[in-house]
Amino acid sequence: MNAILTITAKEIRQAVRNRWVLAATLLLAALALSLTFLGSAPSGSNVGARPLDVIIVSLSSLTIFLVPLIALLIAHDAIVGDMERGTMLLLLSYPVARWQVLVGKFCGHLAVLAFATCFGYGAAVAALLATGSDMDREGLEAFIAMIASSVLLGAVFIAIGYWVSAQVRDRGTAAGVCIGLWLLLVLVYDMALLGLLVLDKGQNMSGPVLNTLLLLNPTDIYRLLNLTGFANVSAFSGMAGLAGSATLSVRVLVAALALWTLIPLTAASLSFSRREL
């Protein structure tokens, strides 16, 4: 068996044993289910909002907070933690390249996150089906796209977590830096951007500038992808206005997320291979 696959399999097994898989799945499922049943209450049933669209809007807002956090929690000690525990020393004496170790771990962690997202959010759809809500094809497509992009967002933050993990000297620092990055990308950046837009009153910030600023934050790319990608969803999310002015196609957004994964992963691989044990 290939070295990368061997490492991936070990990471998955460890995550199952650590109850990481169980905890992440249950957390996402619990939140998705509560949003499914409580979330449609305020909108009522006569507004014309179909339940699935409401769920997509609320779940993708939830994802922006939760998935990066879970991803960073899994990823932040991938390298520095194994070095501190001493297991990395032995692993690297085996015939594996360091990038293989990193890619193997990445695949394993991504699989865990993908499993949790699919089953956690899938529970919401199952609940809707069980209660007999009608579902059209477009809504279902939007939902599947939401799950896929959530996994992609997770990949971005796993890669960022590895980068931090490859740079720092101890686990505590890695955790601290990751929490800081999470706060910055999930909360602070958007508030600052909003503030800028308000101050600017639309004078200097043209469409292309806004687009660039949105592409510089993976959570904003995710938000654009989900809240503006489908007409119905965009109307309920209150993002229709932004969707009109931001002229980024789905293809560009997905490519941007892929770049956000590849660049930190490459950086992590480079600084890991330069590191001495």
Partner: peptide, 13 residues
């Protein structure tokens, strides 16, 4: 073959 000083393994396996 290498045996490090104070060898350690993944505790969950």
């Amino acid at each position: 073959g290498y045996l490090p000083e104070n060898v350690s393994f993944d505790a969950t396996l």
